[in-house]
Nucleic acid binder design. Structure first.
Lengths: 185, 185, 185, 185
DNA sequence: CATGAATGAGTATTCATTCAT
DNA sequence: AATGAATGAATACTCATTCAT
């Protein structure tokens, strides 16, 4: 059950993410975050040691969130083609439903001073375990994890970043087909 | 009258890029850039209207640079397989040789307040013209430009960002093979 | 929570007025004001939104102060001649006793960017109410409020500004006599 | 005959006055003055030693200008009543016709760091010489020069500063009548 | 004479953080 | 636990002035 204090901590994180989407990583000062969250600046320092601590904690948490979301979209019983479609569409859906958090994580992941806090590779280990099983059973082509992540997630992120250019559905359908041809045996 | 020193302007841009790699987009203040470039803060405002002007001008310029570099790696006479290999390896080589600039552009491209200054799509139009010819002649499978960019460039960028994890060469060779299978008819 | 220190706010205002007297409106920078008031520059922004806010708030307050002072010098029961003398001498005494504030208000009132914050006319409305009563009872000649303010206050301010030229008392006595002749029936 | 350089110097002065009216004494920086005058900042330093030199030279020149203008409105043969009317109306006309210069001089005159450059008293000495003659011939009441300046000029300046409040003509007519009653024997 | 480039010192304002309540 | 006050150091930017041409 959510306690009152957990809510406050949550509000702080969300305020920061919201601000960073609106004004970029520079625009999110501690005072603004506090104002947006409806707390005093000093209160933030009860929950976090420093601004960097707040940023990195939120980055760590939210970086895993998209893969947890993905984990809920897939089931071990799925066929391989179905699995690929679920991943692509599920990941894209996440970027739409959690636009702010997605943008926040992308910014953090590309900032050298923050990137080291999170290893992208290990975020998706749950999904990779499943893929390995499919590969072992010959349902998916074998390839290195790095390249699997590269072709499965990076293109979807690219489409999500450039969302405004055209309707998403045809592009998604095409991408699913391409990745199925690439990864199915 | 003293004449304008274009080398100085270059030094300012490079100092900024250098700083942003080291300290992230937050750490690059005008004074630090000036100190790094060996000029007075006021001098920066002779060449640029504002910090945002400096950032966006450099972003615009460098965003095109990688594709110009790529343009020099490919030749119209190449076979389709060779073309894909040249693009993947050429793009990756660029990220290694111009690490700072690559990181700078990636950060800008993911920052909402800066991203709008550059349309990623139009940066690579020269290369796309060539791909369209190959597609028209049946040497490459047809697909939308968005997805072509998504599968050709995004995975390479992903590998480049996570360079430290393992040796690059095997991963590159594998990625080239995957993309050839994906895009060749 | 630390409580707000209204003495501190007062010190800030006084420091600004003091500085503006010594160095003119140009010389009163926020840092100098802060140093003079013994606070940090940032503290000023707790009490005022901006430098302009500080200036205009002080201007508004002090512009009324001289007329409040005057209000205490006069009594409804006075004779008309006595009233004029009290006003002239009272106003002059104020400029001597509150030299800094007088100079500050004069500077603000003549600066186009600040003048609009205060309407000189309405500052002295309390006194004008009394004058109107005297005029209604035929104890003072009738004239427009604008000209009444023009001949009652402007000459005294003029003498106050050029104080150094000669002893004040004879000039004041003469001015009182002139204004009595002018305004008494 | 105006030489080319005289024109340039004139343009600089006018640009400064224009800027000070628009943006107050703080807003008139050397660069802005230069831009407004269409010259380089460095050029200003050919004609003036410093910004203060520019300000004080212009102040000195323009402070005399209104009284020179006044000098042209009056003639020794005038009657005393006519003389007072000419002075009041002439002075007021000047403030309307040379609004920018009038505002500039007023600002300078009330700024402690600039006021000392010009003695208001000696600016109007020409007019005072004439007044003394009228006084000697019994056509004007005798009073000290300070009070004469105080009642003749300060009220007109006050009306000019508060011009927007109501039509000027009735107020001027009334003021002329008041001053005639005050100063005629 | 005239210029635009150059700058150290300054501008108003905001920062991340701590203090006292 | 929570707060708004307080701040030294930083922010982006401008200043008056000088330099080299």
């Amino acid at each position: 059950m959510r306690t009152r204090d957990y809510d406050k901590q949550q509000r702080i994180k969300e305020a920061m993410v919201h601000l960073i989407l609106r004004e970029g990583i520079n625009g999110a000062s501690v005072s603004k975050i506090a104002r947006e969250a409806g707390v005093s600046p000093a209160t933030i320092y009860i929950y976090y040691e420093s601004k960097e601590d707040l940023l990195s904690a939120a980055f760590r948490e939210y970086a895993h969130q998209s893969y947890q979301y993905l984990g809920r979209q897939i089931r071990p019983g799925m066929g391989a083609a179905e699995l690929i479609e679920a991943i692509v569409r599920g990941y894209y859906a996440y970027t739409v439903e959690h636009e702010e958090i997605f943008s926040f994580v992308e910014q953090c992941a590309h900032c050298p001073t923050l990137a080291e806090y999170v290893s992208q590779q290990e975020c998706c280990c749950g999904i990779f375990d499943l893929m390995h099983q499919y590969q072992a059973r010959g349902l998916l082509r074998r390839c290195s994890d790095a390249n699997l992540a590269a072709v499965l997630f990076a293109p979807v992120r690219f489409l999500a970043m450039n969302r405004k250019s055209g309707p998403a559905e045809p592009q998604l359908r095409e991408l699913v087909a391409m990745l199925q041809r690439l990864l199915l045996p």
